[in-house]
């Protein structure tokens, strides 16, 4: 069972995760803007920017984050923004999005000049996240855990970050036991997605380069 502190941590993180979302007018644009490679490119760039802002607002609410060294806060966010973005957009490809949005978003991504070699691993990741049937609590905790990775470049006080991440991992482990009692491997599979995210992150830099070129 979660102890009192863990329960408080979980509801606090979940509340922040639900509160800080891509603004509704952005979602409307997703549906309204007409379909061309340029439009899709601009829209995805705008969504990525808005997503970084949403991510920072969420991260400010992670208990202990704002007491970390200021430059370490920047390094953590810079190092994890891409992964957190893929994780959050993965939710769009599970049952979370209203009917129709997912198909439109998928079409826009496929027709935005991003080369096929990046599209395939991206949608494989979305599919593997979907298969895990994750609860909102798991998404919120996994996002916080991704951000609090002590091994990001330029982190000076890795131990302080590690302590925060460990507290989150412990809560996630218990949540997995409670929410997926018949799947003992569930927690391990969630952590496995984090490694998959790292590969996507690695591809992302190359993807941006080739996207700019085309």
């Amino acid at each position: 069972e979660l102890n009192q502190d863990q329960q408080a941590l979980l509801s606090y993180i979940l509340d922040a995760y639900n509160k800080h979302r891509i603004p509704p007018d952005m979602a409307k644009k997703l549906l309204q803007e007409q379909f061309s490679t340029e439009e899709n490119f601009l829209l995805l760039t705008e969504m990525a920017t808005s997503h970084v802002q949403v991510l920072v607002e969420f991260t400010k609410n992670i208990p202990g984050f704002q007491s970390l060294d200021h430059e370490d806060q920047i390094a953590l966010l810079k190092g994890s923004a891409v992964e957190a973005m893929f994780l959050r957009s993965a939710q769009a490809f599970t049952r979370k999005m209203p009917h129709g949005h997912t198909e439109v978003l998928e079409e826009r991504i496929r027709k935005s000049g991003i080369s096929e070699e990046f599209i395939v691993p991206m949608f494989n990741f979305y599919k593997s996240i979907g298969e895990l049937q994750m609860m909102q609590e798991e998404h919120a905790l996994l996002t916080a855990i991704t951000i609090l990775s002590p091994d990001r470049p330029y982190i000076r006080d890795q131990q302080a970050v590690e302590l925060l991440q460990e507290a989150m991992l412990e809560v996630l482990r218990k949540v997995c036991k409670l929410k997926h009692p018949q799947e003992p491997q569930h927690f391990a599979r969630l952590l496995g997605r984090l490694t998959e995210l790292r590969t996507l992150h690695h591809h992302h830099a190359e993807m941006l380069e080739s996207w700019r070129m085309s």
């Binding site: 990525a48 920017t49 970084v52 802002q53 920072v56 607002e57 400010k60 920047i74 966010l77 810079k78």
Partner: peptide, 21 residues
């Protein structure tokens, strides 16, 4: 607009900003 700022600029700006209620 924010979209032509670099990733770090967007992060610094958002971190500085007050949490809007």
């Amino acid at each position: 607009p924010a979209s032509n700022l670099g990733l770090e600029d967007i992060i610094r700006k958002a971190l500085m900003g007050t949490v809007e209620e």
